[in-house]
Design a protein around this nucleic acid. Structure first.
Lengths: 289, 289
DNA sequence: TTGTATGCGTTATCAC
DNA sequence: GTGATAACGCATACAA
């Protein structure tokens, strides 16, 4: 319980300061910002003026705590120093002695930009963060600050994804769909590569092709599968090992890129469980209207 | 005051739930995450297990409210649909009927990536947001959720920047330094262009140059100034109007790009005021160690 | 070592 | 139309 409504420490101004300055109660101050119509015009003006004079900025923490949601979505991506780069690209790149942020996977930018745009249009804040190869999971730290979380493929275990999904909606990019609460989204990698090869052969008359990259991730595996399906049309036998397969950083055991592997690339969505009092974020969701 | 320690609504699990499950008090749960050494090993194990079983994720809102800081830094950039694009590039681009996010100023990505990297290394979360040409200031909404805010040059008025700076440290990119609480950072645009021209002329033997872009922003004005300073060496008279100067969206009056304009490009920092109990964010600050 | 109690700033439910 | 006041979830002095 505050003693009256003292300006308190030297911190940022709060509703109490604004209320005191405007000669009203904190409830009124809150109303002015959340339900303007509920306050008399003159009162509202007083409050707004006081707020501006004080440089009042509402605390998102308090706000989030009070209404149970943060108003932000999270995007969790790769280790920013690319210590997992070769795992991502599937290409051998030697033990990068000095990680260079500039070699960050470029496609990430595009996806990220799209995410930013959507958040922007939805009026949601975007919280960016990335995995750290060293140290504990940062995911938990992120999950606590957002209403929903999208995750790039990486070192995050499915178990941890599912765990996080118990707290907030989680969307995993290009991951093999699993049973659980996590949402998965991917693209038709197989068909894409087939079309690509068909184009190269039919339109450009290419006769020599080779698949470059180690199919250690679902996406790459799918692409390799598509490559094999279509490679009968090229001069390269479809059992030629993909370039870089041997040199891949982690000899990943989580995926066997056997011939004719099952599972078409697919977009799989699970209905979000209701979290709390019906709140629900929609990472990657459609636009309104 | 909670009644005992009921699991409450259907929301995310809280310290109360974990505490109940582990048979300890909420304080102990908190200690386990914040001061692990203060808790007995067995107790800690119990708590961690309970937390994991429940899928407990600490609320950043509550945490932020309790300790007075959010642990996140903000980066505020352009309107994502580029309605201010031509203002940014200085190039006439016609009234983009259908704004295309793909034409977003590219250099932004580089700066943003650097900011991300630094935040990542500092263990801080990064909150991205952008101005909206329509509607009220989003800045306030951002300022409330971060400990410090970096702002790209754009439609944000100096007044608003200063206002925000009363609540949290604000860093403005490529803006003409002002007196106030806002921090400013820019680069040697003038010298850069001089060097560029020298290189073109001396090394590549270029004899024909033209400055493209309307110097409506401080940075561009500086570049134009540098261009003029060095253009005596080219075949183009230094008073040739820069291409696109006429077509610039806003005939900005905030900057007169008069010849020999004063003010060298400069990095200007102001010591951050102490906010609250000595807390201080350091947007763009150096690395530890 | 662990538990109790209180504050953090906002929201929202009541009274008035 | 406004004003008290109880949550919200966590951190932390202060007790025990």
């Amino acid at each position: 319980m505050r003693e009256g409504a003292m300006p308190r420490r030297g911190g940022r101004p709060t509703v109490y300061d604004v209320a005191e300055r405007a000669g009203v109660s904190i409830a009124t101050v809150s109303f002015v910002f959340k339900q303007p119509g509920r306050v008399r015009d003159t009162t509202r003006a007083d409050v707004l003026r006081a707020a501006r004079e004080l440089g009042y900025v509402p605390s998102a923490s308090a706000r989030g705590l009070a209404n149970g949601s943060t108003g932000a979505l999270g995007l969790y991506s790769f280790d920013m120093l690319l210590e997992t780069a070769k795992f991502v690209s599937g290409l051998p790149s030697g033990p990068a002695e000095e990680p260079d942020p500039r070699s960050f996977p470029l496609y990430v930018d595009e996806v990220q930009r799209g995410f930013e745009l959507e958040c922007w249009q939805q009026g949601m804040a975007l919280l960016l963060s990335a995995e750290r190869s060293s140290g504990v999971s940062v995911m938990a730290g992120v999950a606590g600050r957002v209403d929903g979380l999208a995750v790039f493929p990486g070192a995050i275990s499915t178990e941890e994804l599912e765990l996080t999904a118990r707290a907030i909606p989680v969307l995993a990019f290009s991951r093999a769909p699993q049973d659980g609460a996590v949402h998965y989204v991917t693209v038709d990698n197989r068909g894409g590569v087939r079309a690509l090869l068909a184009h190269l052969v039919d339109v450009h008359g290419v006769r020599q092709t080779r698949f470059v990259g180690a199919p250690v991730l679902p996406d790459l595996a799918e692409r390799f599968a598509g490559y094999q399906e279509a490679s009968a049309r090229t001069a390269v036998p479809d059992d030629a090992p993909p370039v870089g397969a041997e040199g891949a950083g982690r000899p990943s055991s989580r995926l066997s890129w056997r011939r004719g592997a099952p599972g078409r690339a697919v977009v799989r969505e699970r209905p979000a469980r209701s979290h709390g009092a019906g709140r629900a974020a929609r990472p990657g969701g459609g636009r309104p209207g």
